[in-house]
Nucleic acid binder design. Structure first.
Lengths: 190, 190
DNA sequence: TTTTGTCTATCAACCGATAGATAGATGTTG
DNA sequence: CAACATCTATCTATCGGTTGATAGACAAAA
């Protein structure tokens, strides 16, 4: 089923909002900038997303859905846990290498205190979904480990990657990220 | 030597700017908000800090100097490396517990792409100074390790703590941070 | 004909920044 | 010491520009 013109416009708006937010956060972009990116007027953006909160929520949802889809099933027997971890790391790495940008939800999480409530809620979902996925993978890799310890390892994995993204993009050095990723892999003993 | 009234005002402005930025980033605060926090008018803030960039630079500098001063000498023979690491972790933890806020430089690093150049430069210095300190500590703890590996471990330590701050403050759960911190300590084998 | 997506035009509020007045502190000179 | 001059920190008032958001016209599509 082909997309209607309206759906194409909406996709373009959401994509532009994601990119702008990944560069400057929720307070760092405007409807007029988004409109210019897409090639329409700001009133037309408001027609699809009445408020800035609506637009940000849509952008975060799309981002999270895309991420979860790329990661796939953590219990897929055709993929080894070590491969899944590697693909998880590579997902974060690609944000830096391909988009030269932060993880959208990492950036928004840091602004959480000043975000509209529904945006904060969507960002929280990102971390919950990540924790489910990473916990499932690490549970497969460490079947004998206590659930609490698996969870702690899973938390650390995401935290380390988000933090590595922070530091690396500030200094725009991909090798910083790679050093951290290598060390992380080692500490997970996979 | 006592502080003049002007110095007191400047301190209040810088402190307010730090707090506002730690909540909403560079694009998330205004001169009028700062002025209201301090109890003066926005024109008076401009008198001390002509541009927003100037104010942000001053806030970051003060933040970094304070952090380095709290950490102290990484080679102080009276403090064991494990104690120094514990105090480093606690520094990040206190941001969450006492201020209910992000690390200023962690937040600004994520906005780096849209920051005025001198602000980005100060934030980079934060990470450089942190890397010097953590490398010195971990070198003491692992005298036989190759310098490159020590550096990687040091990078991971800061990255993990910044990332833990991100996730924890978004969900406003201190125990998330503590779980990550415990796991980090374990992986450093101290 | 109704619905939909876009437009133009506009709003009040807020933004960073500047100009100029004023009062008080500080310093200089007779 | 007294008188004058300068400097400093604040104020009020305002600038041009931007912000998120709304109203209403219009054309195309269903």
């Amino acid at each position: 089923m082909a997309k209607t013109n309206a759906e194409k416009t909406i996709d373009k708006i959401v994509k532009a909002a994601e990119q702008r937010m990944r560069a400057g956060g929720f307070h760092g972009f405007s409807f007029r900038e988004i409109a210019a990116d897409v090639g329409i007027k700001s009133a037309s953006v408001h027609h699809h997303f009445p408020t800035k909160e609506d637009l940000a929520v849509a952008a975060v949802r799309a981002y999270v859905e895309r991420e979860i889809a790329v990661l796939g099933d953590p219990n897929d027997p055709k993929r080894k846990p070590s491969q899944l971890v590697a693909s998880y790391i590579d997902l974060f790495r690609s944000a830096l290498r391909d988009d030269h940008a932060m993880c959208l939800c990492g950036l928004l999480a840091s602004e959480a205190a000043t975000l509209p409530p529904r945006v904060t809620a969507e960002v929280q979902k990102f971390f919950e979904r990540n924790l489910e996925w990473t916990t499932a993978v690490l549970k497969r890799a460490n079947p004998d480990m206590r659930a609490k310890d698996v969870r702690a390892k899973a938390l650390m994995m995401t935290a380390t990657l988000e933090g590595a993204l922070l530091g690396s993009q500030c200094q725009s050095k991909l090798d910083l990220f790679d050093n951290v990723a290598r060390e992380l892999k080692a500490s997970l003993s996979l």
